[in-house]
Simulated scan of single mutants.
Amino acid sequence: MKKTRPADIYLRFLQLSQALRGLPTLPELDPLEERILALIARAGQTDERLSVRDVMANGDLGAPATVHNRLKSMRQKGWIMLADTEDTRRKRIELTQAALMHFDRLSQCMLSATESRR
C-alpha cells in the first residue's frame, strides 16, 4: 500500500475544493477579496466585532479606498453583510449565511481529503 504524505492530503483537498467552484453558489472573489473574507471569518471565530473602518485601516490589505471598493463588491456578491452597531456611523461586517455554507462545504472537502487517504 502506498504511503500517504501530508502533501497528498493537501493536494486532494485542493482538488475537492476546486470542484466546489464549478457548483452554482456565490460569485468568485478576487485574491484581495479572499484575504478580506479570511480576515472577517477569523474575526467571527473569535467573536471579534470587525467594522468597515477596522478593515479599511488594515494596512496589509492596501489603500482604504481599494478595500472599501472590495467590501462593496463582496456585499453585492452576497459574501458579507453589514449590521448596525451602537454608533450608527459604524457598520459591523458579518458573513452571510451563504458564505458560512461555503465554509461548511470547504470543511467537508477537508474531511473527505483526510478520510480518503487513510
Rank of each mutant, 00 (worst) to 15 (best):
A41Q: 11
M101K: 14
R12W: 05
T4Y: 09
T25K: 09
P27R: 04
W79D: 05
R49C: 07
G22F: 14
D60R: 11
V55P: 00
R92V: 11
D84V: 12
T46G: 06
L50F: 06
D8A: 07
L20V: 04
R5L: 14
L106N: 05
T4H: 07
R105Y: 14
I80C: 06
E94F: 12
M74R: 01
V67Q: 00
E115M: 10
Q45H: 11
M81H: 15
W79A: 06
L32E: 02
A83P: 12
R105G: 03
L32I: 04
N58S: 07
V67A: 00
A113C: 04
Q97R: 15
E86H: 15
T25Y: 08
N58C: 04
A98I: 11
L82F: 15
E115I: 09
L16N: 09
T96V: 05
A43F: 03
D47Q: 11
W79F: 09
Q15K: 15
L82W: 15
L71M: 01
R35A: 08
S17V: 13
T88W: 13
A99P: 04
F13H: 06
G62D: 06
R49T: 07
C109L: 06
R42T: 13
V55D: 00
I9L: 05
E115Q: 12
I93N: 00
D8V: 02
D8E: 04
E28R: 14
E34M: 06
N58D: 07
L111Y: 13
A38W: 08
Y10F: 14
N69Q: 14
G22W: 10
T66Y: 02
P27V: 05
D104M: 13
G78Y: 10
A98S: 12
T46P: 01
L50I: 03
L26P: 03
P6S: 09
R90P: 01
R105H: 13
P6F: 10
V67L: 00
A38R: 12
R70C: 04
L32F: 00
I36C: 02
S116Q: 09
T46E: 04
E48M: 06
P64F: 01
H102R: 12
M56N: 00
P27A: 07
G44P: 01
A65H: 00
S116N: 07
V67K: 00
T66M: 01
Y10P: 01
G22Q: 08
A63F: 03
L100F: 13
L106S: 04
A83I: 15
I93W: 05
A113P: 03
R70M: 01
R35M: 06
T88D: 14
M74Y: 00
D8K: 01
A43D: 01
L95R: 04
